[in-house]
Simulated scan of single mutants.
Amino acid sequence: MGTPPGRSHALRTRLGTLAGVALLLVLLWRTGTGVLWDGLRRVDGTALAAALGLGLVTTVLSAWRWAVVARGLGIRLPLGPAVADYYRALFLNAALPGGVLGDVHRAVRHGRSAGDLGRGVRAVVLERAAGQLALLGVGVAALLVLPSPVRDEARQIAPLLGPALLGALAVGLALRMNRAPSRRGRALRATLGEARAALLSRRALPGIALSSVAVLAGHLAMFVLAARVAGSGASVAVLTPLAVLALLAMGLPLNVAGWGPREGVTAWAFGAAGLGADTGLGVAVVYGVLSFVASLPGVGVLVVRRHAAPRTGPGRAAGAPANAPERAVVPGAVPHPAPGGPYPGSPTAPGPSGAVRIEKYAPKESARLASSSFPFSAEPSEGRPMTPESV
């Protein structure tokens, strides 16, 4: 018997967390704990304020990108709620193992609030994919042009990647043309069509590309800030490819709230570049601290929403919408039971008087989120930020 999907995912998460812990322990064993404490002592108030400012810019831009993607899928997402949700997701990603639980919560909550769980989840997946594509595009260019420990290897591999991708695309098209349409194939085409409309349409592509590049620039600026705090005087041109390697390592599912591969890769990259592995580990530690501080407004979002959650009134069922009208009694109405509900003649069916209680539900608004559930009271324009971000 195979392992259930949910249990398999939980097992992979635990294994990734254990791998991240093991990697951190090996680094501390090789370099000692002095590098860790020295990096933490160097973080001062100025660095924390700069991290909060950079985090604000990157988070607002990331939330705008999310709103643009959601609009392409037919779901309206105001910027204020999107920023609040993004801050909360960043904090949960930084505080919980795995590094993705905040995004999972963000996707599920948005999907349920919009009345379409599938599109809500796809909007978050596509938004994150857009950020990763920007990182890959800019990262490959930086690794090919700027001096780095992997520039020679990257220049040798790059000419082979283009033909390999074209060959894989040709094989896929040939298989698609020679295969009879199937239910799974139709679903895949529908998903690809949604992704094309959400990311590559003339209305969405410019904003997504601009915000993704700006968010990546914000993360690179955070890395340079961490390097300066940790005592590294290397130039931005030298630090940029090292930062790209660290950001790529953060995407590996072998971490403890982002810690693990980032520290290992940064220590190796700084050592290979002649800057010192100890310095690289210190930079990674400071970057982790600054990134966590930049996500702390998410704590405020969690607290505000917890206290602002609507309480169940004495005459309203738990979980009922706050704006749903009370049930009306319609004399003489013919019962129309819902699936699984009471039928005429059952013990719970209406009595002989024929009075039936019919619940009038508020119309589903699948294209709007209830702004009262967010701590932002502003009404931003659709898909555009009211103010000027994680991959």
Rank of each mutant, 00 (worst) to 15 (best):
M1C: 05
G2N: 12
P4A: 15
R14L: 13
G16W: 11
G16S: 13
T17I: 06
L18D: 00
A22N: 09
L23R: 04
L28W: 15
T31R: 11
L36G: 12
R42M: 06
T46L: 13
A49P: 00
L61R: 03
R65E: 13
V68D: 10
V68S: 09
V69S: 09
V69K: 01
I75N: 02
P78Y: 00
P81S: 07
P81L: 03
V83K: 05
D85I: 00
Y87C: 11
A94R: 05
H105V: 13
V108P: 02
S113G: 05
G118M: 01
V124R: 09
V124F: 05
V125R: 06
R128S: 07
A134S: 14
L136C: 13
A142K: 02
S148Y: 02
P149H: 02
R151C: 01
A154I: 05
L160S: 07
G162D: 07
P163Q: 02
L166H: 08
L169F: 15
A170F: 13
V171L: 11
N178R: 12
R184V: 10
R189D: 14
T191L: 14
A195S: 14
L199A: 10
R203M: 03
I208S: 00
L210I: 11
S212Y: 06
S212F: 08
L225C: 04
A230S: 03
G233Q: 12
A234K: 00
A237G: 10
L239Y: 02
L239M: 09
P241L: 01
A243Y: 05
A243K: 00
V244I: 15
A246K: 03
A246G: 08
A246I: 04
L248W: 03
A249V: 02
G251W: 01
L254S: 14
V256E: 13
G260W: 08
E263M: 02
V265Q: 03
A267N: 01
A267I: 04
A273G: 03
A277E: 07
A277S: 12
L281K: 00
V285R: 08
Y287H: 13
V289T: 14
F292N: 09
V293N: 07
L296C: 11
G300S: 04
V303C: 06
V304T: 11
R305N: 11
R305K: 08
A309G: 06
A309L: 08
P310K: 02
P314L: 07
G315D: 15
G319A: 09
A322E: 01
P325T: 11
A333W: 01
A333Y: 00
H336N: 11
A338W: 09
G340T: 10
P344R: 00
T348A: 15
A349K: 02
A349D: 00
P352Q: 09
G354M: 02
I358H: 08
K360Q: 10
E365F: 11
E365L: 14
S366L: 05
R368L: 12
S373F: 12
E379N: 13
P380W: 01
E382L: 07
R384K: 12
E389L: 14
V391S: 09
